[in-house]
Amino acid sequence: MKQFHYHEPKTVEEACLMMAELGDNAKLIAGGTDLVVQMNRGAKAPSHVVSVKTIQGLDSIIENEEGFRIGAATLLADISDHKGMQSKLPMLCSAARSIGSAQVRNLSTVGGNICNAAPSADMAPGLLALNAIVTIAGHENLRTLPLEEFFVGPGIVNLEKGEILTEIFVPTPTSGTQQVYLKHGPRRAMDCAVVGVAVTLLFEQPTGRCQQARIALGAVGPTPLRAKMTEKLLVGKTFNEFPLDRIAELAAQEASPISDVRASADYRCEMVSTFTKRAIVQLASFA
């Protein structure tokens, strides 16, 4: 690993200033589970590393009526174990639990998982399907952005020089919303998703019509993505009216995966179909 300067800003402002000054020579580090590996392999060699772990308040989960404000430096382990999230955002807890090992989850942060912008990032589909909003701090201003607009490409996010992700806000889903994240990989642990599918569904009662449907896909495009055309096929229909085969087909069409050592593009498309259908069937059975 190449030598670097290590900085421990105490405030978000300080961190932003540092990142603005240091520019491309600097990398932010939170848990380091990705950056340290990259630096070790020589794939990344920043001359400055700026830690966000020393910034107060960046690692807490605040729950109120509107939703959950999740600090960017919140550990995946803390998300997985958070009682409030377990009851209202269970798919985020299970997504967090599906990442790496217990040891990794005690280091990795939700902000890191998002900012690495790996197409397979397990937190992304769930957060997309829950319409998460990210808060981005610059050294002068603060802006918010739907998560969907945060992802630009593989490894690239919508952060300007001197900006850092500080918070992810997840609105409390409307009462009765069902949610699930399904991850597919060859092993039952320690895998990157070959395909990840997050679905939320809200059925109007007593008609049983689908009022709201959101489907987000991981590992099947340059960024995690929403399958919005597929979602439209569900709205206004009861479960029995869902055109499941068409849904599966369309979801696969909305994906644009690549082939790599983990799977071929064709297989990934098929798995989008399979797991989108499975997620919908699974949720409908609770409705």
Binding site: Y6, G32, T33, V36, V49, S101, Q103, L107
Partner: peptide, 8 residues
């Protein structure tokens, strides 16, 4: 528990 190989 953490991976001490990943923690600076």
């Amino acid at each position: 528990p953490v991976n001490s190989c990943l923690m600076l």
